[in-house]
Design a protein around this nucleic acid. Sequence first.
DNA 1: AGGCCATTGTTACCTAGACTCACAATGAAC
DNA 2: GTTCATTGTGAGTCTAGGTAACAATGGCCT
Lengths: 149, 149
Amino acid sequence: MTMPDPDGQLAEQLLRLTRRVHRIQKRHLQQRELGVTPAQSRLLRTLAHWGSPPRMADLAERLEVVPRAVTTLVDALEASGMVRRVPDPANRRVIRIELTDEGRSTLRELHAVRRSAAEEILAPLTGDQRETLGTLLDTLIDGAPAGRC
Amino acid sequence: MTMPDPDGQLAEQLLRLTRRVHRIQKRHLQQRELGVTPAQSRLLRTLAHWGSPPRMADLAERLEVVPRAVTTLVDALEASGMVRRVPDPANRRVIRIELTDEGRSTLRELHAVRRSAAEEILAPLTGDQRETLGTLLDTLIDGAPAGRC
DNA sequence: AGGCCATTGTTACCTAGACTCACAATGAAC
DNA sequence: GTTCATTGTGAGTCTAGGTAACAATGGCCT
């Protein structure tokens, strides 16, 4: 009476949930009409958690995407005044990305968006369950073999 | 000393993991060179779990996408001989989607792909943890308010 | 100094996956 | 039989990502 493929099922559930998370987040973002897409929102949050302005390459690594993808995101965010490209005097190849005041104020609104989206997604879970889930996800994310090249 | 936004963090982790799952699955699929994308693979699996051949609209609902998206997927799968469009004699508007023999054989290979991808993703977790995660994900997926409409 | 290679960001292009809108064909209901 | 709902699809858009080629820069090595 063992399940036929428990791990495969798990991956399936994860993917399914994934799609739902994405859709819900997108909807909540659109409702606020901040002109920010989910990926841009993620970049902004990443930026906020940084100490000093990171380089494009830093962002790419943190976001786990190729540098080229960061260029597009920063293009959009810069066009809407959320971030600024600042050349690094110490190394003329690198460009540092700074949050603008407008970016910071948008971030505060994004915080609320994320909260409401998270609330909708996590509604079926109790506080304890959320904590457990958080721990498991942490383990999954941190313990990853980082892509074995 | 409470966390600033635990639920938001959770959603963040979920999204991050999501991206990883997607990437890993895609890589594993490409390695096998089955000519099947992740979304197509999902449709095939959905099809296999169905009793009698479903309508396009059924698939759309089950996959949680708009019907138009199913058209594209079925186009591709039909072009590679995995499925067949069969008109429904009882209602000439509906088209039923049938798995072909080739689709069935591909599905067997996809099963292996999914297993290996799941293994890579879930490597950091013990058996017990996987079980717990499965339960939590079930709760999340089934308990969803289905888009409050 | 000069030459070779790695780093950094970007230009140009492609793909997957989803969405909206409009529409034609069909069925159902009044 | 006219009107309305269902069903699938054409046309077009959009987000998010990926490759490949490249120009500019920096580091290193002799």
